[in-house]
């Protein structure tokens, strides 16, 4: 639904306000994971062309990772032991970053924020729960992902370089999942979306890591066998090494 809303907006709303165009770009459109990858920083920058006299309004920048199905389990105390008991399956982005010029509740109504899934409290998880209320499961997932640095929201972190020019730093941690991401920039005024832009971003392993990953998934038997042979070789080589000394 969120994608539909965004697509409709980009198609129809944007031309209507063509005189104040929102333009934005990324410092890089591919994040490559190499053997010494420890996380990186992206920059999303943009400008509002020909803004009205009252100021440009509010900018909201969202980066969403590929949707992933995740299982959240709740431990309960059974006979003195904490054991996984209830579970929920949720479909949520595997990475989520949001930055805005000021706190979201000042920018738009709860319904509008929910329609575009803006803010960690407004994500649609599509939950399938084994018992009762899905809310604590979604909250737990957001908590866990925030701990890993994969979910983050920071209000007031949109830097205004001039009256119309803005910039946002997006931290991409080392544990970031591979896949195709979406960078969305929204221009809000008086609680409504005036203009929006969406740019794809790819995160992928490259070179050696990529080949290993493909090997492990494409030829798992030979991958396992080579791991064992490597292990045996190292074990054998160590005996030679120590005999010589």
């Amino acid at each position: 639904m969120r994608n539909l809303a965004l697509a409709a907006l980009v198609l129809f709303a944007a031309p209507a306000s063509a005189e104040e165009n929102l333009v934005s770009g990324l410092s890089q459109d591919v994040v490559q994971i190499t053997s010494n990858y420890t996380g990186t920083d992206l920059t999303v920058f943009g400008a509002v062309e020909q803004p009205p006299a009252g100021g440009i309004g509010d900018i909201v920048v969202v980066v969403r990772g590929p949707q992933a199905m995740m299982t959240v389990r709740r431990k309960d105390r059974i006979a003195g032991i904490w054991i996984n008991d209830a579970r929920a399956r949720l479909v949520l982005p595997s990475y989520y970053f949001i930055a805005s010029t000021r706190p979201l509740d000042g920018i738009a109504s709860h319904e509008t924020l929910g329609r575009y899934e803006l803010g960690l409290a407004n994500l649609h998880a599509d939950p399938e729960v084994s018992d009762g209320d899905p809310a604590p499961y979604v909250a737990a997932l957001v908590r866990a992902e925030a701990r890993k640095g994969l979910y983050r929201q920071s209000f007031g972190s949109v830097e205004m370089l001039s009256a119309t020019l803005f910039r946002v730093h997006v931290p991409v941690p080392a544990t970031v999942p591979r896949g195709s991401y979406n960078v969305e920039v929204y221009l809000f005024r008086d609680g409504a979306v005036i203009s929006a832009q969406s740019t794809p971003l790819y995160v992928d392993q490259t070179g050696f890591e990529r080949r290993l990953f493909d090997f492990a998934h494409g030829w798992p038997f030979f991958y396992g066998l080579s791991t064992v042979l490597m292990a045996l070789f190292l074990g054998w080589a160590s005996t030679l090494f120590f005999r010589k000394r």
């Binding site: 709740r74 431990k75 309960d76 399956r89 604590p136 737990a140 908590r143 992902e145």
Partner: peptide
């Protein structure tokens, strides 16, 4: 446990 909920990616 510190957090009763735990997360596993499917």
């Amino acid at each position: 446990p510190a957090d009763l909920y735990s997360l596993t990616a499917v």
